[in-house]
Simulated scan of single mutants.
Amino acid sequence: MKHLLSAGVAAHGMLLILSLIVLFHLLIITGVIPFAVVWGGRLHSHSQMLRFETVSIGLNLLMLAVVARAVGRLRLRVNARFMQVALWLMALLFLANTAGNLLAKTELERLVFTPLTLLLALFSCRLAMEQKKTAVPASA
């Protein structure tokens, strides 16, 4: 995978996609996009949507911070092992999300978000593999 996909492409791709996902969820909260098109079409109320969307935005911002730290755009002292584990956990989360999107009731999730989450899973794997070589120890 290292020869097919550079860490730079993976990092920039993740930063872009995750930023757009945060924007997408903000548009759902503001009502620009109807909440019926997300969460597998299973949300039943505005308050339920707010809870799910708030968690989603928070999680995506956390993942943005992990990626930004992994590629040196966020200058924080973080244990290298923690970074690698976080990236592998992100890959697993995106794989699980890919499976969930395949089972969604809405075509938007099946046709648009399934390939996006699969791509994010691949990008996360690539960055996790790179992390071993480039991680800066927490004591640096």
Rank of each mutant, 00 (worst) to 15 (best):
L18F: 10
W88R: 15
L23R: 07
L103C: 03
H44V: 08
G58F: 04
K133W: 12
V9F: 14
V71W: 06
I33Q: 09
G31K: 09
K133D: 13
R81L: 12
L102I: 09
I28V: 15
P34V: 07
P137R: 06
I28S: 05
S6G: 15
L127S: 07
V37G: 00
L103G: 01
E130A: 10
S19W: 05
L50C: 04
A70C: 00
I29C: 06
H3R: 15
T30K: 13
R77S: 00
L27K: 06
I17H: 02
L93R: 10
R77W: 00
R126P: 06
L102Q: 07
A121G: 12
A36H: 12
A68G: 06
L95F: 15
V67I: 15
L16K: 05
L43Y: 10
C125T: 05
N79F: 08
L4G: 09
A99I: 13
L118Q: 00
R81N: 11
L108Y: 07
L62R: 00
V38R: 01
S19D: 05
L74T: 01
L111F: 10
L93K: 12
G13V: 08
T30A: 14
A80H: 09
G72L: 01
S56P: 01
L43R: 12
L87H: 01
L23K: 07
L74E: 04
L89K: 04
F113K: 02
L89M: 12
H3D: 14
N101I: 02
G41N: 04
L18V: 07
F82Q: 04
L74I: 01
R126L: 04
S6I: 10
L64D: 01
F113S: 02
G41M: 03
L89N: 07
H25L: 06
V37H: 01
G72H: 02
V85C: 03
L59A: 15
L122M: 12
A68F: 05
A10R: 03
P137G: 00
M63Q: 13
